[in-house]
């Protein structure tokens, strides 16, 4: 199989980028999309050209490193699949494909198809955890957890942090990512003590990182390789609203224990 690839080439964060056209022949239907790019890169190296940079690591769809737009769709045409797990049998002879990096103000392009997603780490650092130090944890079975709640928590916790949701959203919102963590921990009894504080600080961080607001397009859910549901965003909004009321002194910045920056809405 032969394919025509138009790939976004950009040397560095500062330099401008543009699309470049490549032809790849000898594409085998059992190859993964990234293996097809490996083949292209080997050819580029042989021609003394710079290979295409893209993030990837586990190639099993779980580390969340990989991801770019294929013909305008994050992770490409197959639902519930990262590009590393997308196989070439889904493409046709002679097909033209446009590959672009995630586009979002909060995800600056580093090179070619690589972007900087460190904003996600900072959202987690803002409160996406349960504050327990190592040691002294109670016996694991001391606190039973409703199976259904544990399952719902697991549904949300499956997020791999790839950033496809942001790339697909017309607002470049990180609502699906942030809400997945808020939901996971809100479902667990262990997450209750910090539940409100967590919702407030994670949402604040998300906004401070210049992600856009959610306007319910649902594009994020459609491209999420792990099937994280839109419902999580509704839950995040509920958690946030409840927390904002319960801790309105903190939100307004008038309380003594101020949690949020003054610029908070």
């Amino acid at each position: 199989m032969k394919l025509i690839l138009h790939i976004w080439r950009q040397k560095s964060r500062e330099s401008p980028g543009k699309m470049a056209r490549y032809e790849v022949s000898n594409v085998n239907e059992h190859m993964s999309f990234l293996e097809m790019l490996d083949v292209l890169n080997e050819e580029l190296i042989a021609r003394n050209e710079d290979p295409v940079a893209f993030d990837h690591d586990c190639r099993e769809g779980i580390c969340g490193s990989c991801g770019f737009m294929i013909n305008g769709v994050a992770h490409g045409p197959q639902r519930g699949t990262t590009v590393c797990q997308l196989h070439m049998r889904h493409f046709k002879e002679g097909q033209a494909l446009w590959l672009e990096p995630w586009r979002a103000k909060a995800f600056p392009v580093l090179k070619d198809l690589m972007v900087d997603r460190s904003a996600f780490d900072r959202i987690i650092a803002a409160g996406g955890y349960i504050s327990v130090n190592t040691g002294g944890a109670p016996e694991a079975n001391a606190l039973p957890v409703d199976k259904q709640k544990a399952d719902l928590a697991m549904d949300a916790a499956q997020c791999i942090g790839c950033g496809a949701c942001v790339a697909a959203c017309p607002n470049a919102s990180a609502a699906l990512f942030t809400s997945a963590k808020i939901s996971h921990l809100a479902h667990m009894p262990q997450g209750q003590p910090e539940r409100r504080r967590r919702a407030l600080s994670m949402v604040a961080r998300m906004q401070a990182e210049l992600f856009g607001a959610c306007t319910n397009h649902g594009e994020c859910e459609a491209v999420c390789p792990k099937g994280i549901e839109l419902e999580n965003i509704a839950r995040m909004n509920r958690e946030f609203t409840k927390a904002a009321w319960a801790r309105r002194d903190e939100v307004a910045g008038s309380g003594r224990r101020r949690l949020l920056p003054r610029s908070f809405p």
Partner: peptide
């Protein structure tokens, strides 16, 4: 055994039985 205690306290969503135990 301590590892499981620690991870449960962190909110790791381990598989559960209907009674709520691990």
């Amino acid at each position: 055994a301590n590892i499981i205690d620690q991870c449960v306290a962190q909110g790791v969503p381990f598989a559960r039985e209907y009674g709520g135990l691990l």
